[in-house]
Design a protein around this nucleic acid. Structure first.
Lengths: 120, 120
DNA sequence: AAGGTATTTAACCAAGTGGTTGAATATGAG
DNA sequence: CTCATATTCAACCACTTGGTTAAATACCTT
């Protein structure tokens, strides 16, 4: 239902096992078997996890004999960071403007404009 | 299955409708009905989406008569950014070291070390 | 008290997910 | 060719998810 890139990336990272795999790949490339070793689940399950990461563009793979080494694609992180920063900045700007507004109002009567800003 | 905070946050943002809601809340607080208006789904469905965002700590709510205004909690973004930056930095450092290594090797015979760096 | 608006809860359904086991494929080693 | 290793595919299962409709709750207005 959500097959756009950002959805795939967030969805992929919503699973702690997959985040752990990403964390380990950040330290260096690894094969499916190597990645599967620390977990109690079957290697097939880990293979599926890797496929999810691959579909999201977080991981790429090469061929080394029977092995399929996994490599972390760092650029995809930029996609997330960009999205996150965009709205965080908006929210913070709004917060700062509100803050300034409250500062202004401190020097005035301040009547019916309460209740909404009290939340922050 | 994944009830830690980061999983909840990533999972919440994996849905495009919920990301859209976050985007709109970044511009200002809004009620459930206001948020539901642009979509074709029922207001109950949107109410569920908001609950997911709330459980993830991305949204907080207050009370205004019958209304329950939603407010974007920007701090949670830091949690994500921290996680992302941590592993992106690791991956980039590793990439830079590889780059330096390849630079060194450029002054030497350079035999079987090709094919891996071509991807970047 | 009665009615209207805003929101949530409950029960249900189709589709998706993470796991399993068992069989298939791909490649290197004898 | 045969065997072992590495990985994937297929079928299945329990559970979750995003949606629905119908009913309940919360609060204001008259």
């Amino acid at each position: 239902m959500a097959d756009d890139r950002l959805s795939l990336v967030f969805s992929a990272l919503a699973d702690p096992t997959r985040r752990d795999i990403v964390a380990r790949l950040a330290a260096g490339d690894a094969t499916v078997n190597e990645l599967a070793e620390p977990y109690e689940v079957t290697v097939q399950a880990v293979s599926k996890h890797i496929k999810v990461l691959e579909d999201a563009g977080l991981v790429s793979r090469s061929r080394d004999a029977q092995r399929r080494p996994c490599h972390l694609e760092a650029e995809v992180f930029d996609l997330m960071t960009k999205w996150i920063e965009r709205y965080r900045r908006k929210a913070e700007d709004r917060f700062l403007r509100l803050d300034a507004l409250l500062g202004q109002m401190g020097e005035q009567p301040a009547t019916d404009t309460q209740g909404k800003e009290a939340a922050s």
